[in-house]
Design a protein around this nucleic acid. Structure first.
Ligand SMILES: [Mn+2]
Ligand SMILES: [Mn+2]
Ligand SMILES: [Zn+2]
Ligand SMILES: [Zn+2]
Lengths: 143, 143
DNA sequence: TATCTTCTTTAGAATTATTCTAAAAAATGT
DNA sequence: ACATTTTTTAGAATAATTCTAAAGAAGATA
């Protein structure tokens, strides 16, 4: 019999699949980070928040590896980066067309479906330039 | 009739006026930074770029004072901050309603008039939150 | 003017998010 | 197993920004 690895029952095959498709070796660290990122609803994390989260789950991954992994997942198209705050960088598991509310008091992001928002009247890009993307950030504060 | 404007009045009295109105003492450093920021067309600067610029003009101001001054000007409503890049913060002399092109290759900002762009379909803010502002960043790259 | 008080400036240290280095560890192919 | 390649990681390094605290400048008062 193969060794029964009870710890990695449900999320494992799913995460391993994602990693292999992305051309990344399914290491323990990547599997665990992928499980936290992709086995649930879409979410927004910072390197620090994800590192804290896996640490609280008793998983030992260095912060450098969290940074490396977030960037590799981004390069593989599994994540996108969101720039809303000067002091911390966010990564988003929702890579589809959508925009964000940013709760300035909490530092929280909330998705706005891409179909909901329309941006009209964007002038032609400057000469020699092409539009890469249009980001909308709706900054909200506690009333 | 010859009404004094920002472009044709001499920098010093204009800058001193702005500072006094903002409740800030017109020190040499503030006057010089204000002259560079406000006596010409609207512009986008980083602390470093403004510090380099005044240094090249032979003016001696510490980087700490540039940061202090940019924040004081922002608090006084003379500048606004623009978050487009994770590695550097931008300050904008145009405090009116407008949006931006961000040239990712160069790190340059270009204004888009507020009347030009319309954002429709923004959902209601989350409970207990009010919209502070809606920022649109059109990220462009060299073709 | 001289004096008093309140800001302001500044050098340098500290902070913080992130990246880099380079050596050990793990994964994969044969 | 062995060889090759990739990955992880501790700790050092980087870079934007902020902080500290002491010296300097500005405004008020007489
Ligand atoms: Mn972070
Ligand atoms: Mn920054
Ligand atoms: Zn999102
Ligand atoms: Zn602008």
């Amino acid at each position: 019999m193969g060794k029964a690895t009870r710890e990695n029952s449900s999320p494992a095959p799913f995460a391993a699949e994602k990693l292999r498709t992305a051309g990344l070796r399914p290491t323990r660290q990547r599997m665990e980070l992928a499980a936290h990122l992709f086995c649930g609803d879409d979410r927004h994390v910072t390197a620090e928040s994800l590192h804290d989260e896996v640490a609280r789950a008793g998983i030992k991954v260095s912060l450098a590896t969290v940074y490396n992994t977030l960037h590799q997942f981004t390069a593989a198209g599994l994540l996108r980066q969101v720039v809303v705050d000067a002091v911390r960088g966010y990564f988003d598991t929702n890579t589809g067309d959508h925009q964000h509310f940013f709760l300035e008091d909490e530092g929280t992001l909330i998705d706005i479906p891409g179909e909901a928002i329309q941006v009209a009247g964007v002038p032609a890009a400057p000469a020699g330039m092409a539009v890469d993307r249009v980001d909308v950030v709706v900054r909200v504060k506690r009333t």
